[in-house]
Design a protein around this nucleic acid. Sequence first.
DNA 1: GTGAAAGCGCTAACAG
DNA 2: CTGTTAGCGCTTTCAC
Lengths: 323, 323
Amino acid sequence: MSNIRDVAKQANVAPSTVSLVLNKTGYVSAEIRKRVNKAIEELNYTPNELGRNLSQKRSNIVGVTMYDITHPFCNTLVKYIELYLSEYGYKTMLCCTSFGRNTEREYLYMLKRHALDGIIANVFSANEPIETDRPLVLIDSFINENIPIVMSDHHQEGRLAASLFIENGCKHVVHLTVNKVMKSPAYERNNVLEQILNGNGIRTDAIELSNHSRELNYFSNMSKLLFDRYPDVDGIFGSEIFICECLKQAKIRKIRVPDDLKMVACDGTYLSELNDITAIVQPFKKIAKKSVDIVVGLAAGEQISAETFEFKASVLKGKTTAV
Amino acid sequence: MSNIRDVAKQANVAPSTVSLVLNKTGYVSAEIRKRVNKAIEELNYTPNELGRNLSQKRSNIVGVTMYDITHPFCNTLVKYIELYLSEYGYKTMLCCTSFGRNTEREYLYMLKRHALDGIIANVFSANEPIETDRPLVLIDSFINENIPIVMSDHHQEGRLAASLFIENGCKHVVHLTVNKVMKSPAYERNNVLEQILNGNGIRTDAIELSNHSRELNYFSNMSKLLFDRYPDVDGIFGSEIFICECLKQAKIRKIRVPDDLKMVACDGTYLSELNDITAIVQPFKKIAKKSVDIVVGLAAGEQISAETFEFKASVLKGKTTAV
DNA sequence: GTGAAAGCGCTAACAG
DNA sequence: CTGTTAGCGCTTTCAC
């Protein structure tokens, strides 16, 4: 493994000159450039990123923390985050927090240790207070007033969902909510939905998601429970996976969708599209882009105020609603 | 930002002693340890990973290259790879190759530059010859004899699928194949399926996937094409997403599943489970574990022969087959 | 047991 | 324009 000094020696120049040639920063005469490139070729030299990282005090890596990468919401987001980060020359470190590993602290620590230049975090379970002066942006999460947040307009999501159920003439809507302990801003959509529907004389019931389990099995059981507990339900609002399970359950119970039961899913990823589910579609690209812009900006030393950035959602009409 | 020297000065010891305390390597007297820890506390010192990386010539990061993280096959694999890597103390860098970015070379280059300690790669499009003496393992891909490969037993997958169609009494099976240009080892399952079915007097037709597009839209069109071209099809074998599209198409055309049409999907991720699709389930955990073991072993300098490691698949019975 | 010193490979400030 | 020099922060012999 030859290093930059070997190349310099071989080409009869200084290491810094080799560096200049490599990074195309600053001017180097054509002749010297040729000599350096020849030496690089001869020695089969490859610059070592680790040295550069230390010297520049940056890793060019941004961590993206997500609960579970198999969840459509997560992987759709990650897909675009990775794309946009790569446009800035940043690499994406995947930081999963499932499997009962309490890994969020660890990633935060990596940020502190400069192994990461920044973090884009979803589902930060802030059990302990978080203080960091390093680049951090949250998606759909809240820790404190000092950390910027990016998310879809959950208030509007609630309104869109409510409109759908009203237009479809539902009388009794059951909605799945995230666990309140998480204090997720996403809870707002359920609040708004409930409020509007009740205001229109429509009965609503909420089923609260457990704090931990996200297994398919769990959702399957929840869907059974829903139909058992509310036999006259004619509208369901919940996550895509849950709606999928409800679709199966409805088929088993011979409940016709959308004739006798309308369903609306949140998030609206490929899973809704694939199953023809009516959904409130989150503006994934915009959320990803904004998060990336913020974290990259912060990493570049820009002063970015810790605002909350919201983007409008839209409706995907599928076959789980009549109108 | 204080460094290890500041801490040493504060504690009246040498930097190397601080290092010993931090890494719990070697013996340090209780008193000195206490002094060092006090200094660390006082200065709010956090070790800088970049310095350590350079010194140790390793990044503790393994790259995982995948075509598209939203694909169930990819994210299921990545989920377990991330888990197993973390058990070895490695971090996962997500390397996506979609969006028309030709990023595989780039990741390989990162490996060379020691920004990555190893790569677990799926779908390496080896346009150019690949030579690397650094840790690299392939999943479901082939480049040359010198790189270890991990995958499910595609031959057996083909046999399992064939059995299903035979047991279900199919007469005309259409199967979706990966593009032959890719030379994917996964093609074997289609070969075997065809061979066995034909041997049993069952007609087969193949539809070859385009080399690039993986949009839902594309699969939707392919499913229409399939039914248009083969109106008497009574068995379909293909990727989960394709089978989902075929399910939709069958419903539109009022073809009863599984009464008049049986379908079997490959991979068998949560998507099959969620949609009650009969599928050939890949041993994701085993594939992930083996890949991780190999790449970690190689990174540790172990001599690992470039074999092909295959693991048995299994069948998930869903509602797209009768038996 | 602990400290001094050298080095990992690269970059950047500053002369010349 | 190019070379010299001095780090970046940590680890690791090797003396003491």
